[in-house]
């Protein structure tokens, strides 16, 4: 039932692969947490938004731009797009029940998925990422440079976001608006625009996730669907209101799933996800807020 042949070199490679996929889950989970924390709603369209921006990057690269030239352009487009979506589509649902907002994001996901098929066609295509696919030899193991790059991008992203939230006025306003919208309005914060900003940032983070995973999985309209599921699991694991939790949850989930799938024969490829979800459920029973989340004290 248990372990197959084991070498340290392969273990290191599996760990690298697990952390790299974990970095993608973590990024998308971070986007989900951003929107959940600012607006309280779950964005089911996060994956499709990321795939959409990745397709835009693909088109730009098809017209001759290099990956790193297209990168900032796509991030700006994602930012503007995210703000636009919040201000138009989500605005009527800011104050209503969260379920309605969630269903609207579901509708958005469907629309985006369909648009991608219509504009770019449903076939998968290769995407050349920003990192070389060569491997580097570290202590006997062949670690892909791409994996190292992905994890590095995640850490840079997290650092930038942390600086933004802690040391800038806008970051403070965003935190205030999500914590207490009514009081924030009283001190002059435009809460609606803060929500929009949250969506914009989430769209950017999602775009980065898409750009990182596209070289590994081929680029197609359904690319992010399974990854979004893992991202939800990672966000829940880490605590839905904790960005740190999203990152830790994502990396942990990526690691656990890769290692379980490789080393526990019974689990194999089919049971990877159910087992991971079972573990998360077990954790939540013990800690209902996830690893780093806080369960709000309930008033009677």
């Amino acid at each position: 039932m248990i372990v197959v042949a084991f070498t340290w070199a392969e273990f290191a490679e599996q760990v690298a692969a697990g952390l790299a996929s974990g970095a993608v889950y973590a990024s998308l989970a971070l986007a989900l947490v951003l929107i959940f924390r600012t607006t309280g709603a779950i964005n089911f369209a996060q994956g499709e938004m990321a795939t959409f921006t990745t397709f835009i990057a693909w088109s730009l690269m098809n017209h001759g731009l290099g990956f790193w030239a297209a990168f900032p352009i796509v991030l700006v487009i994602a930012f503007v797009g995210g703000i636009g979506i919040e201000r138009t589509l989500m605005r009527p649902f800011e104050r209503g029940p969260v379920v309605s907002a969630a269903i609207v994001t579901l509708g958005l996901a469907l629309v985006l998925n369909g648009l991608m098929s219509v504009i770019w066609g449903g076939a998968d295509r290769t995407f050349n990422g920003g990192f070389s696919t060569r491997t580097v030899k570290i202590a006997g193991a062949h670690i892909s440079i791409q994996y190292i790059g992905m994890v590095a991008v995640l850490f840079v992203l997290v650092a930038l976001l942390a600086v933004f939230f802690r040391f800038t006025k806008v970051g403070l306003a965003l935190r205030a608006a999500s914590l207490n919208p009514d009081s924030s309005r009283l001190v002059g914060i435009r809460v609606g625009w803060m929500f929009a900003l949250g969506w914009g940032l989430a769209a950017v983070v999602g775009a980065i996730a898409g750009l990182m995973i596209a070289p590994i999985e081929s680029l197609g309209p359904d690319m992010m669907q399974v990854i979004l599921l893992y991202a939800f699991a990672a966000a829940v694991l880490g605590g839905l209101d904790s960005p740190v939790g999203a990152v830790v949850g994502g990396l942990l989930l990526g690691l656990v799933i890769t290692l379980l799938g490789r080393y526990v024969g019974y689990v194999g490829q089919t049971l990877k996800l159910p087992v991971a979800l079972l573990l998360i459920l077990a954790l939540l029973v013990v800690r209902p807020g996830g690893l780093f989340g806080r369960v709000a004290a309930r008033r009677v």
Binding site: G107, L108, N113, G114, L115, V118
Partner: peptide, 10 residues
Amino acid sequence: PGIPSIIFGA
């Protein structure tokens, strides 16, 4: 392909 999805979503 894709049009049905757009319609559902809309």
